[in-house]
Every structure is written in structure tokens, then in C-alpha cells.
Design a protein around this nucleic acid. Structure first.
Lengths: 145, 145
DNA sequence: CCGTTGTTTTGACAAATTCAAAACAACGGA
DNA sequence: TCCGTTGTTTTGAATTTGTCAAAACAACGG
């Protein structure tokens, strides 16, 4: 079963975003549902299982198209490959484990229309604020004791 | 004149950090004084002028050593090569112009020991918070009108 | 001035991502 | 149902940024 019947499935969402529905796109979307912060390579591994023969370039295309269509967002923690997530449209941030690389979401520190004002006047017309917290996840913190 | 006489110069600072003083190191340090947010390539261009024959790998080594020694910090705005800055030890953040790439410093939103608490409980042991504001610098904002 | 030890050069290599052209497939209309 | 258009994917190469390792070299304390 690819769709249980309640709520829009990958195909509908992809089509609603103005993109054609294809195997790689469906599979990539479903991969991101399962792995909420996945690199192109990790998505590729799953897509390839669902649609054998899919190329890594197709995955890069799909993910790029998702980002352009507003279906996905790309984040890039320093020193790591880009990660893709489906949670878009809310201004949320990330915690990254500096030991194991685990990434979790964090709701915005300031609420709804947030983080857009630096403390001092910059002269810039600020559009977005990205916040990345670095630290140890519970498991790695426990292991480090 | 490589040193005007007031204040420690590059050589002294490099030595004080426990590193040997060499041409490429001096030149890289001076490059970062002039260009406060420079990529390895940009540093390379300047170092090569001051010390002809210097290799790009030497520049990567120097910058890596500076970071290890606490003389410099490496930041990596999404989608760009790493940038190096000499301003270290204070928790400050950055504004990046999404049009021309200009990077400016922004003092930390919360002051001294700042930004370490996400709004919600994450379970992570947070160590650092990186904040990057994206927007248009005054020039690009004016040009966009 | 010498020797130790750290630095730089040289050259290869790797990861992540992009580009371009040709083959192919989705899907709206005939 | 089939066709054509237009968007996607494959294939294959190239680019950018950065790392690794060994040999040549140079800083600086003795």
C-alpha cells in the first residue's frame, strides 16, 4: 500500500505544488517523511530501493525542484552536506549534535514572526534568520560522562 | 613598513599563539585584518602578492592552524565557501547579503553569554548557537527599488 | 651555526554538487 | 486511446572546495 486513504498522499502534494508526479519524486517525498533531515545521498539510498535505476542526479533534481516549489527546505550545517526537510513555512531552527550529527527541530525562540531583528541596526533589510544550536544529544551526552 | 610600532603586530600575535612566524602566516594574518570575512581563496590572492610562490595548500594549512590556535574562526554561510575572521572569543553573529554576498558582524542579540537557550527543552546539552541573518545590504536594497 | 621539529610544497585524491545534451515519460487534448 | 508537448531523467563530464601524505625546507632554541 502506498497510500492509506486519509489525507493527501505524496502524489497529490507533488501535483498540487505544480510538479509532475514521477516515481523518483514520490519516493523522495516519502523518504523525507521517514527521515526528516536527510542528505541527498540518504534520500538517494531510499529512492533507489523504491525505484531501482534512479540516478543520484535525479535525486538532486528532485530535491532542487522541491525546494523551488516550496515543498522542501535545504539547510546546511557547517561542515556537512546539505540536508532537506519537508517542514516549511514556519520559522523553525535546528539543534545539531556535534558528536553524532543528529539533527532535531527547535521551534523559533521568539514565536511567530521572529528573529528578524538583530540587536543592533545593521542597515541590512533582513529577510530570514537562521539559528543553529550545536551541542550533545542526550545519548552522546550520556556516553561522554 | 610592515609594522607601525604601536600595538602587537602579526608576527607577535602569531608567536604568542604558539605558532612559528612564517611569511605565509604573516601575510594571511594581515589579509584577514584587511578583509575581515575572507574565503581561503581570497586570502590566497593576497598572500600570493606578499609572498610569491605560496601555495593554496599552505593557505589552507595556515588558516586551519589559526583556527586551531584560537586566532581565527571559520564560518560557513549556506551555499558558500568557508570564511575566516580574526574576531574571536566574543559570541557575535553575521548578516549576509543574499544578493552580493557581503558579510557584516552583528553583536549577539542577547549580550554576553547568549543565545544558548532554545525556547523549548531539546534534551541536548547546548554548547554554541550560530545565528546568520540573511537580507539585502543597503546598496543592494537601493538597487532593488 | 646546528639540529630538531614544525611548515610548506607537490601531487594526488575525495566529496558534494552542477552542467548539458540526449533519451524518455507524464498528462492534457484530439 | 493515442499523440504531442513539455517537463524529467539519464548519462557522462566537469567544477568547487577541501583533505591527505610524503618529501623538501626553514624557524628558532641551544
Amino acid at each position: 500500500m502506498t497510500h492509506s486513504g486519509r489525507g493527501p498522499d505524496a502524489a497529490e502534494i507533488i501535483r498540487a505544488a505544480g510538479l509532475r508526479v514521477t516515481g523518483p519524486r514520490r519516493a523522495a517525498y516519502e523518504a523525507l517523511c521517514v527521515m526528516p533531515h536527510a542528505s541527498a545521498d540518504e534520500v538517494f539510498d531510499r529512492v533507489r530501493d523504491a525505484v531501482p535505476g534512479t540516478s543520484i542526479q535525479a535525486v538532486y533534481n528532485v530535491l532542487g525542484d522541491f525546494v523551488d516549489a516550496g515543498l522542501a527546505r535545504r539547510i546546511e550545517p557547517s561542515g556537512r552536506p546539505g540536508l532537506f526537510e519537508l517542514r516549511v513555512g514556519d520559522n523553525h531552527h535546528h539543534v545539531v549534535c556535534s558528536s553524532c550529527g543528529r539533527v532535531d527541530d527547535v521551534d523559533c525562540v521568539k514565536g511567530e514572526a521572529p528573529c528578524l531583528q538583530p540587536a543592533q541596526e545593521t542597515g541590512f533589510r533582513i529577510q530570514v534568520a537562521e539559528v543553529t544550536f550545536w551541542g550533545l544529544c542526550p545519548e552522546c551526552a550520556a556516553a561522554a560522562l
